[in-house]
Design a protein around this nucleic acid. Structure first.
Length: 316
RNA sequence: GCACAGGUGCGUGAGCCUGACUGAAACGGACCGGCUGUAACCCGGUUUCCCCUAGUGGGGCGCGGAGGUUCAAAUCCUCCCCUGUGCA
């Protein structure tokens, strides 16, 4: 099953209750929480939380390494399979929409990133006129150029990269479809608290992060890895680094982190609204009423699953 | 209480000198949306005074307040209110 929702909606809290109740294991689906040593800014579950259920795909990437949606999907599927083989319930928890989609529905079968190619494209784009990349893609694959906005550089680069590396149009590859996860009946629980209340909680949590040492953690990471650590540019760490460099003061840093989290939550909701078959719950995951409703949903799904012909065939 | 700076849409803040092209740049916010390997990234849109019109369009109000000059004012003039800084 999946527990999804915007930041600060209480996913961790709900998932732990469900894990304890249904012999579950947590599979993280938050892109930044996968990196080691990024603790405070990612609101990772505490040691006490982690003792309540096994956690997977948390803290497994070196801060200087790159992890892509494709890497995550591959590892995630293996993890899900292992949990299932142990006869436990996998509970995917997180807010990174693309990673969740990559895990459940798969990505198209395209080539992996090529740093050299990207470097060259970026360099040339810097020298040429603004519309350069878009025009280039237009020559390689007019259909995809039509779909990607001329200003969206990262997506243009990926499309060009795919076309060049595979000597095929990316739209042709898309037509071949994805490779969805098989062998699971998914139950998706979505947390959707009232916006105003969510924003209040986000503000509160963001300023709390500063109180418990977000800036100190950032300083430590900067000292150890320099700017090379990928997640240093993500929510919270970015502003803490600006504070350390003296570009902004503490008050400003706090309010910018709050703002960034609010904006992020908004975008997450835009993404999740398109997620298929989500059972939406209007409230926070730590709310007992929401937890009770969730337990009931999971219970019902499990019973239905047990009665299904396939499950009976398996048990015979 | 004397001197100077300033009051613009949800916010910051252009425009004011050199009046018409300004319902008001830009950046933010809020909201909506997109995003198939950097995704806590990246990108797009709407909102941005009220009324009439299916729409093109038209009318009114509007840049602290009240008047005035002018064919025409956020922009020029007068007075008033408020804010900040300097001097008493």
């Amino acid at each position: 099953m999946v527990v999804l929702g915007p930041t600060a909606s209480g996913k961790t809290s709900l998932s732990l209750v469900l894990a304890e109740r249904f012999a579950g294991e947590i599979v993280n689906c938050d892109s930044v929480a996968m990196y080691r040593e990024f603790e405070i800014g990612t609101a990772k579950p505490s040691a006490a939380d982690r003792a309540r259920a096994p956690h997977h795909l948390l803290d497994f990437v070196d801060p200087t390494a790159y992890l892509t949606a494709g890497d995550y999907a591959r590892r995630g599927r293996q993890t899900l399979k292992d949990i299932k083989d142990r006869d436990r319930l996998p509970i995917i928890v997180g807010g990174t929409g693309l990673y969740l989609r990559a895990l459940l529905e798969g990505l198209f079968p395209g080539p992996q990133r090529s740093e050299e190619l990207r470097e060259r494209l970026r360099e040339r784009a810097g020298q040429k006129r603004p519309g350069y990349l878009h025009k280039l893609l237009g020559r390689l694959d007019p259909d995809s150029a039509e779909k990607i906005h001329a200003n969206d550089t990262p997506k243009l680069i990926r499309a060009i990269e795919v076309c060049l590396a595979s000597r095929e149009k990316i739209t042709e590859m898309w037509k071949r479809g994805r490779d969805p996860l098989r062998g699971f009946r998914m139950l998706r629980l979505g947390l959707n608290p009232e916006r105003k209340a969510l924003y209040d909680r986000i503000n509160e949590r963001a300023s709390q992060m500063f109180e418990v040492g977000l800036v100190e953690e950032t300083a430590k990471l900067l000292g150890k890895y320099g700017e090379a650590a990928r997640p240093l540019s993500s929510l919270g760490y970015k502003q803490a680094a600006q504070l350390l460099r003296g570009e902004i003061d503490r008050t400003r840093a706090v309010s910018e982190v709050q703002q960034a989290h609010r904006n992020y939550a908004k975008r997450q909701m835009t993404w999740f609204r398109r997620e298929p078959e989500v059972v939406w719950l209007t409230g926070f995951g730590n709310d007992p009423a929401i937890q009770a409703a969730s337990v009931a949903r999971v219970q019902a799904a499990l019973e239905k699953n047990r009665d299904s012909p396939r499950a009976q065939a398996r048990s015979e």
